[in-house]
Design a protein around this nucleic acid. Structure first.
Lengths: 249, 249
DNA sequence: CGCGTCCTTGAACCTTTTCAATTCAGGTGG
DNA sequence: CCACCTGAATTGAAAAGGTTCAAGGACGCG
């Protein structure tokens, strides 16, 4: 494997492009390898079978697809959505670099949700069978995997609280705070974003209509908390945003 | 340990009462041991350190408690709730025999929610460290544990869809269908229940006020779908209930 | 038997949705 | 390079669903 790397030395050979290296990946402090000793990270990158490009608008997996692997966002941005019996579907999450996708497929071997790229993206493909083997071998990897699954549960709970008991303004504020925090953790600005999703998708995620999202943005802009121009958004008063969430109804 | 068990032989000695036996447990088809070979079930029951009684109204664990073990409901009924920043808290789930509690604590070593018994209950205590060890040893147990965590994720997603896009009547119908299905899976009647929770708790779980829950019950009763008398509830027309959920808004 | 908690029901109010009409932005082709 | 076209976003007004406030009644526990 390392020999293949050195066989020829074109600066951007196809194999290099898709050579998996968790050790040197910019995301190693956020992703599955976090906290693992170097030797185990090497095992891990040997296991990651593939890196796959997903074009904007393309489906990574859809409800009912056979579950074979989990995916880790390497670059780009995804939405996941689940559909109700009546056909409507709801955005259950937005996912950025270092975040896991597809964990809901473990339950019965079929994906329970669908994942769509909101911009041209790349994911690392982690075959689930191999991950099982490796987590049995290395306790720290096991611990980290369980931690990440548990984090999903914690997030989902927070989402339920949001959907079950917050008003529109609180929901939008909480959404923005969460988004900015995750961007900052990845080295991006914590005040400006170019939103990758539509108002409709934000609304679907927050249990609101796109009009309510738009109106809430407008009002926050009038109040000087935000600056919004279509997809470009800038948080002017993060403190006020926090207060909006905390404020009881 | 086993010597202590046999030291004296009163028919209903305290130790016998709390002797763990997954092999003979009525829940073994629903619980963690499901699908495991007998030898592994024995290992599992050796691991389950304890069975704990939790009186009605008592707290099994609360937000911030150090996470040391997961719990499996053996008898009784629990609610779990998560609190928002502003202090209000929301019921995130109701849990009956065979269901796992506390998985959200794996993430950062502290419970993210609290669990309260809604009737006198018993739980099996599964020390998490030992569970980790055992899942590394037995691949089927590992698979089963991951399946159960994943099932939580799937459930949470369904809950988000409910909270994000259903009307009051649909929510209540979905809640009842889910409740009855789980009761039936445990050998109870799938048409009558004595509800263990208040209207307020149902409302908190469904993102509705207690008044709306009450009114919805009343209306369903008028329509001949249910029969409700305080906590006693009987589903008269399960078909209609299903239609209520499926119906688009 | 009394008290407290839980439940039910009514009426007014409020937030968000729905429906509808522009406006805006970005990409395409002439 | 500009005009056009389409999907996205904004904004307004009316309507609906659910909440809030309030009062009365039922139930269960001590």
């Amino acid at each position: 494997m390392s020999s293949r790397l050195r066989l020829s030395l074109p600066p951007a050979a196809p194999h290099d492009l898709f050579k998996i290296s968790c050790s040197t990946c910019a995301l190693r402090q956020i992703c599955l390898p976090t906290g693992l000793p170097a030797a185990e990270v090497l095992q891990l990158e040997r296991m990651v079978s593939d890196r796959r490009a997903v074009a904007r608008g393309a489906v990574l997996f859809k409800t009912g697809d056979v579950f074979e692997a989990i995916y880790i966002v390497r670059t780009g941005f995804f939405k996941t959505s689940a559909s109700a019996q009546d056909g409507r579907d709801q955005v259950t999450g937005f996912h950025m670099a270092g975040e896991l996708l597809g964990l809901d497929g473990i339950y019965d071997g079929a994906h329970a949700s669908q994942a769509v790229a909101l911009e041209d993206s790349q994911v690392c493909v982690v075959p689930y069978g191999r991950l099982e083997d490796l987590t049995r071998e290395f306790d720290r990897l096991q611990r980290q995997f369980h931690r990440l699954m548990s984090r999903e549960l914690v997030r989902d709970q927070a989402m339920m609280v949001l959907l079950g008991s917050m008003r529109a303004e609180q929901r939008v504020a909480a959404f923005l705070i969460n988004l900015m925090r995750r961007l900052r953790a990845r080295g991006f600005s914590s005040s400006s974003v170019v939103l990758r999703m539509t108002r409709d998708e934000i609304g679907s995620h927050l249990g609101l209509t796109l009009e309510t999202v738009s109106r809430t943005f407008s009002r926050m802009q009038e109040d000087g908390v935000l600056e919004v121009r279509a997809r470009e958004l800038r948080v002017l008063k993060p403190r006020r945003l926090l207060q909006l969430v905390r404020r009881a109804v």
